[in-house]
């Protein structure tokens, strides 16, 4: 892949479109008071469910990569992602326990 002027301009337009949509979404949501207490709760719960599923899938993929390819790049990266996932969870529990 070679970096070309077309590619960079394509990247900037794509980036800009997403940014605009996101800005509009937050602007409109703020006006409708969409991001209230209930929104926080719902999305925290959603991320908790998703976190649980990702932990299991990530562990299975890690094992799969180990058996299929041995200690390859995929194995190391998946291990790192798993470590980050659990470590960030642990740190967050520690901090929140002090704060809450």
């Amino acid at each position: 892949m070679i970096l070309s002027g077309e590619m960079i301009s394509g990247f900037i337009s794509g980036f800009g479109i997403v940014l605009l949509i996101a800005l509009f979404y937050f602007w409109k949501g703020r006006k409708e008071r969409r991001f209230d207490e209930r929104y926080e709760t719902v999305h925290a719960k959603a991320r908790t469910i998703s976190w649980g599923i990702t932990v299991i899938v990530l562990a299975l993929m890690w094992l799969g990569a180990l058996i299929y390819e041995g200690a390859s790049l995929a194995f190391i990266l998946l291990a790192a992602a798993y470590g980050i996932m659990l470590l960030s969870y642990g740190i967050a529990v520690f901090v929140l326990n002090k704060k809450l």
């Binding site: 999305h43 991320r47 908790t48 976190w51 996932m85 969870y89």
Partner: peptide, 17 residues
């Protein structure tokens, strides 16, 4: 509550990872 929020933060970190 603590663990829900913790997983929520960890979810964001994992997304980046």
């Amino acid at each position: 509550n603590v663990h829900r929020q913790a997983k929520s933060i960890s979810w964001g970190t994992t997304t980046v990872a």
